[in-house]
Simulated scan of single mutants.
Amino acid sequence: MKYFSKNLTEYQPDCLVGVPLIFDKFKSRISDEVKKKGLHKKVKLLMKIANVAAALGLDLRRKLFKQLLEPFGGNLQVIVTGGAAVEPGTVNWYESIGIKVYQGYGLTETSPVVAGGNDRRRKTGTCGEPLPGVKLAIANPDAKGAGEIVVSGKNIMLGYWKNEDATKEAIQEGWFHTGDLGLIDKKGFIHVTGRVKSMIVLKNGKKVFPEELESYINKLKFVKESLVWGESASDGTVEICSRIVLDKEQMSCIQTLPDDESGIKKILDSAIRDINRLVPVYKTIRYYVYGYEELVKTTSMKIKRYIETERIRAILKTTALNIKNATGKNIDKLKEMMAKSVENY
């Protein structure tokens, strides 16, 4: 990622394939530059006019926004993204400057793509429809039609190497259970809403998808990424918590001293209050910690949730804190305190 911007201008790609996080960050950087130059309102108006003209058959978007296309090398025509949900606002922004965005869905076990948007049928906020020869359904749907996504077809793996138990659990009656939650709308488009394993089930039975809250947090321009999880209290209630990874450069533009915990806490407290107003009461974020160290991820840029939450719990336990006492604190500093206490011991 260090040389990504340089590589784009050097190789001038026509198509880019990547996770939404990459394209979110590029959009944010370019939008910030536009705001600094005082052109935000002008660009926004031009986008609206250009989109209307394109709908009428006169597509001038790539000519009008030639300068906004330059950071991508100038030739970028198509973005293909997957691995996580992409924000509709991000899709609309790229489409408005003349870049088509296709969201796909798949897993290694399904060879790997099972669904995607195309020029014939494409809907923002969805993963399109199943590819030819692939069947997709929702297992045990709730009243809203949401449940676990299951897939069937010749593209499904034969099984996990030397692991019959895992294979039997994953493939049942010819259907591969993806572990992803979602629904299929009336027009046949697939919506992926979260992971079965990451879903937070509250004491009253209500379900919270961390990805939804993370998307709100990640929209904050001074946030790089975030993690939301459920922490069990002594009385059995489950409280929604978050670890927020800040962008030091962006934070320094807002907060003169990027290491001033009290100042940062005020900013984050206000931001969390605003987010909580957007969701039902049972989904509100109760506690949070922040830092600058990036979250541990897989090679496909997915957060290793279990590892991260266990690390947070270990840090809090060693420093004799619980998440309530630690809320608003810098987790990186608490980690340093833990390391020192281990050394002294």
Rank of each mutant, 00 (worst) to 15 (best):
V17F: 13
G18W: 04
G18K: 05
L21K: 11
L21I: 09
I22H: 01
D24A: 13
K25P: 05
F26G: 00
R29A: 13
I30V: 13
I30S: 06
K37C: 14
K37S: 12
K37R: 13
K37I: 10
G38L: 03
G38C: 04
K41Y: 12
K41V: 10
K44V: 12
L45M: 11
M47E: 11
K48Q: 13
I49N: 05
A50M: 09
V52W: 15
A55F: 11
A55C: 08
A55Y: 04
A55T: 08
L56R: 07
G57Y: 03
L58D: 10
L58A: 13
L58Q: 07
L60K: 01
L60D: 02
L60A: 04
R62Y: 02
K63E: 10
L64M: 15
F65C: 11
K66P: 09
K66Q: 08
Q67K: 15
L69H: 05
P71L: 10
F72E: 06
G74A: 13
L76E: 05
L76M: 07
Q77L: 14
V80R: 15
G82Y: 02
G82N: 07
V86Q: 07
P88T: 07
P88D: 09
G89M: 06
V91T: 12
N92R: 13
W93C: 09
Y94G: 11
I97H: 11
G98D: 02
Y102C: 10
Y102M: 12
Y105F: 14
L107W: 03
T108S: 08
E109G: 00
T110I: 04
P112H: 04
P112L: 06
G116A: 05
G116L: 03
G116W: 01
G117T: 03
G117S: 02
N118M: 06
K123E: 12
K123I: 08
T124V: 07
G125A: 01
G125P: 03
G125M: 00
T126E: 01
C127G: 03
G128C: 02
G128E: 01
E129I: 15
P130S: 01
P130E: 02
L131F: 08
P132K: 06
G133M: 09
K135F: 15
